[in-house]
Every structure is written in C-alpha cells, then in structure tokens.
C-alpha cells in the first residue's frame, strides 16, 4: 500500500487542474483542460510529428552531456589527485560553474553559429564544470587509510589510482552526473528555443507559443516533465547498482 502513496500527489494535481478548468476558475487561454492537453500529447505521438523533435533533442542532449562527462571526469580526478592543481584551479572552475551558461548565449552563437554545435557546446559547458568539481571532490574524499593499505600490499601509484581512488570517487562522480543530467536537459531546451532550429522540443514549445496553441505548449511541457522525471529515476537506480556500497 505504502508503495502506491506516490500516485496521490499527481492524481490530486490532475483533479485540481480539472476542477479549475471545468468550472471556469482559470482562463482557458492560459490553462487548457487536462483532457485537451493529454489528447494533444496523444495526437503529437499518433501523428508522429513529435518524433523528430524528440530525436534531435535527445541527440543534442546526449552528445553535449556525454562529452561533458568524458572530458570532465578525468580532468576532475586528476585535479583532485594533486592538491596543488586542485587549489590552483578551484577558483576558475567555481567561477565558470557559477556563470549561467544561458548568459553566454550570444558568445556561443558567435563561436559556433546557429547549427547544432552551439547547442551541444552550451550543453557541454553546463555539464563539464559541475562534473569536474564533483569528481575532484570525490577524489579528495578518498580515505587515507585505504591508500595506505594498498601501499602496504605493494600497490604502485597507478594501481592505487585504479583500485582505490577511482572507486572512492565514483559515488561523488555519479552525483555530479545526475545533477547535470537534468541541468543539461534544461539547457538544451532553452538553446533550442532561442537559437532557431527546425526540430527540437524547445523549438516546438516556441512554435506552439507563436501559434497561440496552448494545448500543445502544455502537452510538450508535460512530455518534458515525464522525460526529466524518468531519466532522473533511471539514473538514480543505476547509481545504486553501480556504487552499491555508498553510505554503507
């Protein structure tokens, strides 16, 4: 029974939404009814028109995100490994991380043009600094006693790295990856809305807005919510499988 409690919130929200629209409490131009929204969402799928948007958004999202991870994790681990490197880079990384990527938007346009590369570059930028910080932090959290134990058993520096430090930093690295997974989705959508493109969920939202198609606007937002929710859940599940020892 307890397991089913999580459906209560969404159901209550749907009922509230339905009441608001049904009895005219909300301006139907600002808030379409749930029936309209979901039937539009269904329509988007049954007509197949949304698939190209999903495909391209996923493409930009995954490339930007994965590049951010592939570049960020080794850099972060190296940075965390040497206190000197850590101390000297800390300010820079914190600075760039704190800059909203969306504020650098024009810069990306100038550098990468209006194609996919600027969107991917923005997604990458939103990902990479946070990944670096988390991986580096994870490495600094490595228990000295485990390194000492490995050394005592004759481990080389490389072995210490692959057999101890890597594992010790993994939980933190994964936290960084999960945080940036949602964040990078936001950035992709925003970049699609502002840097014109033909397909993409961000672009579809923007088009719906210019066409005054509120049903569709809400339908895509609901879709994005579902994508964001399940990607996060899936990642959390993987986290508990990969770094199963965390907190034990």
């Amino acid at each position: 029974m307890k397991k089913l409690l999580f459906v209560i919130g969404p159901i209550a929200l749907l009922i509230l939404w339905w009441i608001l629209t049904k009895f005219g409490f909300a301006n139907s131009f600002l808030l379409p009814s749930p029936e309209d929204t979901f039937s539009r969402l269904f329509g988007l799928f049954s007509s197949g028109e949304v698939f190209n948007d999903i495909r391209l958004t996923f493409y930009r999202w995954s490339i930007g995100y994965l590049l951010g991870c592939v570049v960020g994790i080794p850099l972060g681990i190296l940075m965390g490994y040497s206190e000197k490197v850590y101390k000297s880079c800390e300010f820079l990384i914190e600075f760039f991380r704190s800059l909203p990527v969306t504020a650098m938007f024009p810069l990306f346009l100038l550098m990468f043009g209006i194609g996919d590369s600027s969107k991917i570059a923005m997604t990458f930028t939103a990902t990479v600094f946070i990944i670096i910080i988390n991986s580096a932090y994870g490495v600094t959290q490595t228990k000295k006693s485990r390194i000492k134990a490995a050394k005592t058993f004759g481990a080389t520096n490389f072995q210490i790295f692959t057999n101890v430090v890597f594992y010790e930093s993994l939980p933190h690295t994964l936290i960084g990856m999960r945080t940036t997974l949602s964040l990078s989705l936001i950035v992709v959508i925003v970049s699609e809305m502002f840097i014109g493109t033909q397909f993409g969920l961000g672009q579809r939202i923007y088009d719906a807005y210019t066409r005054n198609s509120v049903d569709e606007l809400y339908a895509v937002i609901v879709l994005l919510g579902i994508i964001g929710y399940f990607s996060n859940k899936l990642f959390m599940y993987m986290e508990t499988k990969i770094a199963f020892w965390t907190g034990k």
Partner: peptide
C-alpha cells in the same frame, strides 16, 4: 578494519 577494507 572499516576504513582499510574495500567496500566495493
């Protein structure tokens, strides 16, 4: 022992 065994 907690901090010298490898939990993974």
């Amino acid at each position: 022992y907690r901090d010298s065994l490898m939990p993974w």
